[in-house]
């Protein structure tokens, strides 16, 4: 028995020793090779950077960038990714796309976007989106229906980079029941700067979708500052669904204009603190001085955020609002109202 134990231990020691030795050698050689390659990449980056930038700014000779080595293509791709965050013009983007075609990057990314390994496809999708490679749009539209969360979210993000908002909106309308709420919110967050056509399309469809999606689109219309949507959004102030009313108030606050001030002011007396809060926000953003009278009692509201926003709004309404705050600080019967007025006046005195 003891002999067997000793034999087993000897074998184990020999194995572990061999494994450690192999790991040592592997780690050191890998590190040396990696550092050598990194140095080469840095040198090439500094060499190629001005040429690429020059090419983007002024039409150049594409042959300059005939690149066969994969690592060199990686460096140029990185330069291009940096460039797209600076060069936003249509002509410059066209040249970036041409350059991608010339060095074979578009083909490489197209192949990768179709790859079955989701992480390869997702990474290629991210690059395609940032480089605005329109040629890959059909594949991205296919991938948006992928079952893999990471792949479809990166496809959605890429499409939003390329401002294909309509595709995303259609995707949401058609797949709402299949998507998790959080995923829908993520996509909605990508929809910024909707075009006039997109706004019109959303307004046209708004009545046919679920209240959840309605609320989100109302909010996004507000954030996109789509003034054409003001009247349809204001119609939702009469909705039976409290959440929709709140979203409509929030959107109006973002649009900074309203045609129904009395309706907005009536929300200051709502039983829902969310409605009261968002009505205050609208009064502030639309500078509705007629709302001041309704705001003063909210300085002693039982919700901290309401007291805070009410005091902030009074301050923003100019000298008469500030006077109300000073008065509250001195003589209001409620301690919380006095302290909030004090706090806001103090904050603005610095």
């Amino acid at each position: 028995m003891k002999v067997m134990f000793i034999y087993l231990l000897l074998v184990s020691i020999a194995y572990i020793f061999a494994v450690i030795f192999f790991m040592f050698v592997y780690l050191v050689i890998r590190k040396m090779l990696r550092n050598r390659r990194a140095r080469k990449k840095v040198a090439y980056y500094f060499y190629i950077y001005p040429k690429v930038i020059e090419h983007i700014k002024v039409d150049g000779n594409p042959r300059l960038f005939e690149i066969r080595k994969h690592w060199k293509r990686e460096v140029v791709a990185n330069v291009l990714l940096e460039a797209v965050s600076t060069f936003k013009g249509r002509e410059e983007i066209r040249r970036i796309n041409l350059l991608c075609d010339d060095i074979g990057l578009t083909d490489e990314l197209e192949e990768k976007v179709r790859d079955k390994r989701w992480w390869v496809a997702a990474e290629a999708t991210r690059m395609a989106g940032r480089l605005k490679l329109e040629r890959l749009t059909p594949v991205l539209l296919e991938n948006i229906s992928s079952n893999h969360y990471d792949l479809w979210t990166s496809s959605a993000r890429a499409l939003s980079h390329m401002q294909h908002y309509r595709s995303l909106i259609q995707f949401l309308f058609e797949n709402e029941d299949k998507l998790q709420r959080w995923s829908i919110i993520r996509i909605i967050d990508m929809l910024k700067n909707l075009s006039e056509d997109d706004v019109e399309y959303v307004i046209g469809k708004l009545k046919d979708v679920s209240p959840f999606l309605q609320g989100l689109f109302i909010e996004i219309l507000g954030k996109s500052r789509a003034h054409a949507a003001l009247i349809p959004i204001e119609d939702y102030l009469d909705s039976d669904d409290m959440e929709i009313r709140v979203k409509a108030l929030r959107a109006i606050a973002s649009l900074e204009m309203t045609t129904r001030p009395e309706k907005i002011i009536s929300f200051l007396e709502s039983e829902s603190w969310l409605e009261r809060l968002n009505a205050i926000l609208v009064i502030k953003s639309c500078h509705l001085k007629t709302g001041m009278k309704g705001i003063v009692p909210l300085l002693s509201d039982n919700q901290w955020w309401i007291r805070y926003r009410a005091a902030e709004t009074l301050y923003s309404l100019g000298s008469s609002g500030i006077e109300k705050l000073k008065e509250t600080r001195m003589i209001h019967e409620d301690r919380y109202a006095r302290e909030m007025a004090e706090r806001i006046l103090y904050n603005h005195s610095n």
């Binding site: 003891k2 134990f5 000793i6 231990l9 000897l10 184990s12 020691i13 572990i16 020793f17 450690i20």
Partner: peptide
């Protein structure tokens, strides 16, 4: 021998 080997094993 067992103790030495076992000690070596744990250290390794």
């Amino acid at each position: 021998p067992f103790a030495v080997l076992f000690f070596t094993f744990t250290l390794l």
